[in-house]
Design a protein around this nucleic acid. Sequence first.
DNA 1: TATGAATGAGTGTTCATTCAT
DNA 2: AATGAATGAACACTCATTCAT
Lengths: 192, 192, 192, 192
Amino acid sequence: MKDFNVRDQVARAAVELFAEKGYANTSVQEVVERAGVTKGAMYHYYRSKDDLLFGIYERMLTLQREHLDEIIARGLPTAETLRAACVDVVETSIDALPEGTVFFRSVHMLSPERQAEVTRRRREYNDAFAALVTRGQADGLYRDDIPTALLVANFFSDIHYLSNWYKPTGAETKTQVAEQITDLFLKGIRAT
Amino acid sequence: MKDFNVRDQVARAAVELFAEKGYANTSVQEVVERAGVTKGAMYHYYRSKDDLLFGIYERMLTLQREHLDEIIARGLPTAETLRAACVDVVETSIDALPEGTVFFRSVHMLSPERQAEVTRRRREYNDAFAALVTRGQADGLYRDDIPTALLVANFFSDIHYLSNWYKPTGAETKTQVAEQITDLFLKGIRAT
Amino acid sequence: MKDFNVRDQVARAAVELFAEKGYANTSVQEVVERAGVTKGAMYHYYRSKDDLLFGIYERMLTLQREHLDEIIARGLPTAETLRAACVDVVETSIDALPEGTVFFRSVHMLSPERQAEVTRRRREYNDAFAALVTRGQADGLYRDDIPTALLVANFFSDIHYLSNWYKPTGAETKTQVAEQITDLFLKGIRAT
Amino acid sequence: MKDFNVRDQVARAAVELFAEKGYANTSVQEVVERAGVTKGAMYHYYRSKDDLLFGIYERMLTLQREHLDEIIARGLPTAETLRAACVDVVETSIDALPEGTVFFRSVHMLSPERQAEVTRRRREYNDAFAALVTRGQADGLYRDDIPTALLVANFFSDIHYLSNWYKPTGAETKTQVAEQITDLFLKGIRAT
DNA sequence: TATGAATGAGTGTTCATTCAT
DNA sequence: AATGAATGAACACTCATTCAT
């Protein structure tokens, strides 16, 4: 009976190291050493170093998509849905800060095919989110003198930026930060 | 008389390639080929590949700092100063989109000493900017129920994110985008 | 089952080439070619070219130290011990002429740390040898009008110089040369 | 009017650096920097880095040969001539310790042709010196149970070794050391 | 006489990946 | 399922030397 799972240990080590030193500055040897396995074992589970990186994107994209779909599925009014979606994505991103660091820094290190795949799925997510804003604009909730795309970018930029400044040891709790970021965003876009 | 300058040609090629494919995926050989010089010539002017990267940071940090200082030096009221600073940094960042791409993506590829240097200078810039917000809060212009640091991060995240979505070929002009981003930010932080 | 060992083949090729053409004039490529292995294989066993060189020093220093300790451990009278030590070190040096060539010519090519290490261990060996001479001087066997250090240097210089003139194909056998060098040395230092 | 001579400054810098760090570890750039001249100037006076090295050998070989010839030309008895030659070469070698360091360490760094040239001239010097010993053996002054070549090597090894241990700051003067080394040598080879 | 920018071949080293076991 | 030795292509960088000025 194994007390650990090779696949998961490797994935965990990879996220840590890629976040600490960057994908390019991390060797497969370092990953397997931190994971406590051998190179051969790793290559039994992953086809390439690129696989390790893509795994991080795969998990993040899936997670965010599931969360957003679930929130939309609740069928709440637009304003409440958007607020919930915003708060959730900030909280989720704080829970996965190292993944976020890698996510926003290393897309160009993926194989071209996978870069395309990531871009496609990010766009899908972006579109679903933008649809909420558009609906709110149609309802007169949010300003429409600024392109929806810019409004949405204004929010996603905060998610992107989180790993650049947020420290779990800070004074503000995850939820407080999520509420504050959401509030700033919503104040900015509300119809006047 | 030379029709081009080795130093500048190399710098230009480096920015382009680092933005296109990432620092780690760009070889020195590729840089000198695009610059149309030989490797030896390049190493006559730059000590290392790291120098090429740091040059980009050096120029950006200096430029932004000079702009901010100049705007503050005008001595306008706080609100006008902050607005001018915001619009200017967006415009400046749009003028240097490839540099921005590299700037926000590749700090971790610099030597540790230079990472520290960049961090220090970014913090100085951040502090000077934050001082404007703090002054506005004291004057009752901006909300103070949210930490200044978060308010500032909320703006800088947009700068950071610009190179992820802005296309010079889009419908909006540089100035329009600058005004819109600034407006969203200021609406978000104003006192209620 | 392999008919050769990468580590040893590389070490052998390195000694040969470093003795023939000097450390600086020998490329890693040449070493691996003569050893019949690939560069990657070599770097699997050695961390650097410097390692290859240090290996030679390591082996020589250990060998000489072991021999001297063994001879001293026999507990023979001083004169017999010194004579045995002299004869042995000449013979051992003739057995390892290429190593000797490298040993005395290339210390300055080692990393500073390793130069220090080699110097330290050579001094230890020198001191152990000098102690025999000092004991002989106290017993009135050897002249004491000349510093012990110079007496010892007078002998070690011959070891050092061996690879400059000794040819295994010459008329004198290894043992004869060892006896002759030892005799010249002992005649020079005996009390009058 | 120049306050220094490029040729000589470069030669001086070269000896110093080659002795300190070795020929291979010294770049032409470092030599010209220490000499306080530019690369172009140096290449105006020397054809190659190899020239710099060979210059050291040229000067040493010429100097030693001149000294030996002058001493022999005095026409003193064999024993006095040999003693004078020995004392002189030790003193001369101590006066030129850095040159000696380079001399005995870097022959293999010369071009093959120049290596041959140096070897030839060293052999000539060696032969002239050996002739004195042979004459002394014929006169019954020195032992002839040991090949002349080995007797001579026994002395030259000390010259060779000088730069490995002699410190000008030590307790013994140059002349004392010269007398002591000579005495040890002559005691060792005298007929019994 | 002298400059220093430019060349270009060569260096040691790294590392993702493969494969016999 | 796992090992770790071996591969081989790529990489950043160095440096003696040349040459237009």
